[in-house]
Nucleic acid binder design. Structure first.
Lengths: 342, 342
DNA sequence: TTGTAGGCGTTATCAG
DNA sequence: CTGATAACGCCTACAA
């Protein structure tokens, strides 16, 4: 079992290594007979080519990597499936790589490019605060997909596709206002560091403002740092605290469905009713939102379209059909049972 | 940016490649001054070592791979986090690799072993039907964690940790019987192919039998093949069909919480009440189950303990402290609001 | 402490 | 159609 190599196979077959190589790589110029004989020996001896050696030697690889930050986010599950499907359909292979919260996705990408000779990269999730210069190090086509960004980049920097978090967040809060809510709480990320939470928070502020409502600090709640963020538990705890504070409010806007579910549970556990006592709204459009009881009013991101556009753009760039493209998809406000006119 | 190598760095620094190598690998025998100078040049030029070349040369690598089948299963999210933490704490690096449903996890592992010089492997999820011979090809320590298995292997074959799906499933159904239910529907996987669903289904059958209840074909429902399995949607559709069939029943046992949530929604949408009209029970112990409204009675798998035991056993085997170990954890029946005495 | 050279397992080039 | 042989980029004796 001690690691059999291509040389061993060659020796076993009484041929040269290059012939074996041709056999395993489906090269055209090889005798069918020798090829099948080689394949047989390979099967018998469980020979498996070493990918490191292959990658080292090869200059191209037909593989697209998807680097994903926050892999446990259920929002990405469907996304990954579609990306996978699309990539495979182009006869490329799909490499999913999770990026730790603390890691720098560009560095990870740089490493992977060298290691795997990537042809393209998709960045999923996270929040980009990288400089143009840093981004410029990536000498492989890439697309940012549903990643938050601090500044609005222009098309000469890179391609990206996502929804407009500010606008969609605004849309939701504005909707709540139009339903008659004046005291709308928000549950968001810590406002200290750059994140998608800030953008959605800004949409919230703007919507309040445009509806002539003064934001109240007491209604602006952040997820607990001590608990894992973006979890139902966090939403639950924060909402419970809010309820117990006796602060007056009639609606909660949670910046993610996961949090919204925690909020709902906290409200229900407190013996209150949704939407009669409190309205709850989420963001993302996860299955969980629509299957919850009551179903949760949310902003549904068009996952399918986002994923497809991501791959389309990526391949356009790979094939030099086009330069960078920016695509912002509109998201849909899905009205559930968790909100109502008051 | 055209791929700078260790040679370039060496030339740039006016030193030999081995000196550079020593610098980047923190070797002790190198002058601090030359080292820092080298590191500086490396930074300036954004040099990144090629992992393929490294892996090719190295014989060991201190990396543990976790191969996971069904990566979108939220049950694994927490699992992954703990595995990651545990592996890092042992100063090993953690490689998460998703295995497609159609792929053979052993083959994938074999490839990865060669490519990355793995020191250990954790298989997560899926259902093993491999032969001993196939398993024997793995010349690297590995542990099966929460993977279903057709036969009961003995300890000489491999290590594994999981809950006893038969027993736990039995426990749940028996509990429903004790609550007074006699007509208990089950939603499971297709009964054709080997899977964890079959085992849980068998537990269901046995529990019915021991409670003197004759199973009814009409109450045995399988997830739709046409819809992605293990989704709320699937649970919803199947339950809706069941309700519309006018078949008489008082409880539903779904073999996963995800399905149970779909079931609940279907029941609620039909204007029925849980648990007054129908009781619903799930399996897994996901957050969703307890945050749902009503909270769902389920079997909670001790994720934390399973993950920790997995790593412990793996390292025991790696360090030759022990031979294969089998650990079966008891799961907990968590009573929610979705069931009650009738 | 540092440099040189050989080899890790493949693939690709170029003669045969 | 097939077989040497030179890279691919790095690490590691071994020598200096």
């Amino acid at each position: 079992m001690s690691t059999i190599t291509i040389k061993d196979v060659a020796r076993l077959c009484g041929v040269g290594v290059s012939t074996v190589s041709r056999a395993i790589n489906n090269h055209p110029d090889i005798n069918e007979e020798t090829k099948s004989k080689i394949m047989e020996v390979i099967k018998e001896n469980n020979y498996i080519p070493n990918n490191s050696a292959r990658n080292l030697k090869r200059s191209n690889s037909r593989t697209i990597a998807v680097l994903i930050k926050g892999i446990s986010n259920p929002f990405f599950s469907k996304m990954i499936k579609i990306l996978d499907r699309e990539i495979q359909s182009k006869k490329y292979s799909f490499l999913l790589h999770r990026v730790d919260d603390k890691e720098d996705e560009i560095d990870v990408a740089l490493e992977l490019i060298k290691e795997k000779r990537l042809r393209g990269i998709v960045f999923l999730g996270g929040f980009f605060t990288h400089s143009k210069e840093k981004l410029a190090q990536l000498d492989v086509p890439f697309v940012l997909s549903t990643v938050g960004m601090a500044q609005q980049w222009s098309k000469d920097v890179c391609s990206f596709v996502a929804v407009d978090d500010f606008k969609e967040s605004y849309k939701m809060v504005d909707y709540l206002c139009k339903l008659g809510h004046r005291k709308i709480a928000i549950i968001t990320t810590s406002l200290d560091d750059a994140s998608i939470g800030i953008i959605r928070y800004n949409g919230y502020l703007q919507a309040l403002k445009d509806n002539g409502i003064e934001p109240e600090d007491a209604l602006i709640r952040c997820m607990k740092e001590s608990i894992e963020t973006y979890t139902m538990e966090n939403g639950y705890v924060v909402t419970k605290e809010l309820l117990e504070s006796k602060e007056e409010f009639t609606a909660i806007f949670a910046i993610s469905d996961i949090i919204a579910i925690g909020s709902c549970k906290a409200i229900l556990d407190a013996g209150k009713s949704i939407p009669n006592d409190y309205a709850v709204a989420g963001f993302d459009g996860l299955d969980y939102a629509s299957y919850y009881n009551p179903s949760i009013t949310t902003i549904r991101q068009p996952v399918e379209e986002i994923a497809e556009a991501t791959i389309k753009i990526l391949f356009d760039v790979i094939r030099k059909k086009s330069d960078h493209q920016l695509r912002v998809f509109p998201a849909e406000l899905v009205v559930g049972q968790s909100t109502k006119q008051i």
